[in-house]
Design a binder for these strands. Structure first.
Length: 245
DNA sequence: TCCAATGTTTCGCC
DNA sequence: GGGCGAAACATTGG
């Protein structure tokens, strides 16, 4: 379901129809105070990075979709027990395979919104400064660091590195100021494109290297291998993304 | 049938 | 107590 940051922004928009409506029923396999949830009205739906936030008057629910999580509205999956199922105004919402936690309702104070590339509060200088603090790290690890680029997942990482023309195992110290700025800027702008493409159902066809056999731009064979300390797979084109600039 | 993979938390060891 | 790595969790498509 590709639940990286932009997908949660889309989900939050989809949930706007449920705002200020009462939860009529709350069930599911997750250990949550279902009786308490039932009495509440949904006051705010938003996201911070990969955290999907349902905010009620006296508490909030933080939903993380991890690798395989998904949600459905009025179309339950067959033979699947949802972690959480909510009935709101006759609609049924199902959350599957996700980690749900009760948190305080003052979510503004719980997150640094300037870190989320999908947030209005996101700032470029802050990201640049944070990256520069770890000169020995690989850019592939930096991009996946939720402390710096919350919202960015492995799909976005690979595509951002492509557009920034950077090899995944470029060290931060090897970046000059303009390529560092270019990388950070690309995160923000790719987030916006991801959002638009996903909404239009055009996400996969815009991937240039992620899970591709050949580079979508130059046709060169794509390299797929585990990179960085995080040991996540990177997909990259050695022709478009040479190791040194 | 098997295995990797859109990700994070928890546990145990130094 | 911090830092690190391994394991756990969970689902699906190739």
């Amino acid at each position: 379901m590709a639940m990286e940051g932009p997908s949660l922004v889309i989900a939050a928009e989809e949930f706007e129809q449920f705002l200020n409506l009462k939860i009529q029923k709350a069930t599911g396999s997750s250990a949550l105070p279902m009786a308490k949830i039932k009495k509440e009205q949904l006051r705010l739906v938003t996201s911070w990075g990969k955290h999907f936030l349902l905010v009620f008057d006296s508490f909030a629910l933080r939903i993380h979709f991890l690798m395989f999580g998904s949600y459905r509205i009025n179309r339950p999956r067959e033979n699947r027990v949802p972690k959480l199922q909510l009935r709101i105004a006759g609609d049924e919402i199902y959350f599957y395979s996700c980690a749900i936690k009760e948190v305080a309702s003052d979510i503004e104070g719980q997150y640094d919104w300037s870190r989320d590339i999908m947030s209005k509060a996101w700032t470029m200088p802050k990201a640049c400064r944070k990256i520069a603090e770890t000169p020995r790290r690989f850019v592939c690890d930096v991009l996946m660091d939720q402390e710096i680029f919350s919202s960015v997942g492995n799909i976005m990482k690979n595509e951002i590195l492509y557009h920034a023309h950077l090899h995944p195992e470029t060290k931060v110290s090897e970046l000059d100021v303009s390529s560092l700025k270019g990388l950070v800027k690309e995160c923000r702008s790719y987030g916006k494109r991801f959002y638009m493409w996903k909404k239009a159902g055009l996400l996969n066809r815009n991937w240039i290297v992620f899970r591709k056999k050949i580079c979508g731009v130059c046709g060169h064979r794509v390299t797929n291998r585990v990179t960085g300390r995080m040991e996540r797979v990177s997909h990259y084109c050695t022709r478009c993304q040479p190791r040194f600039k």
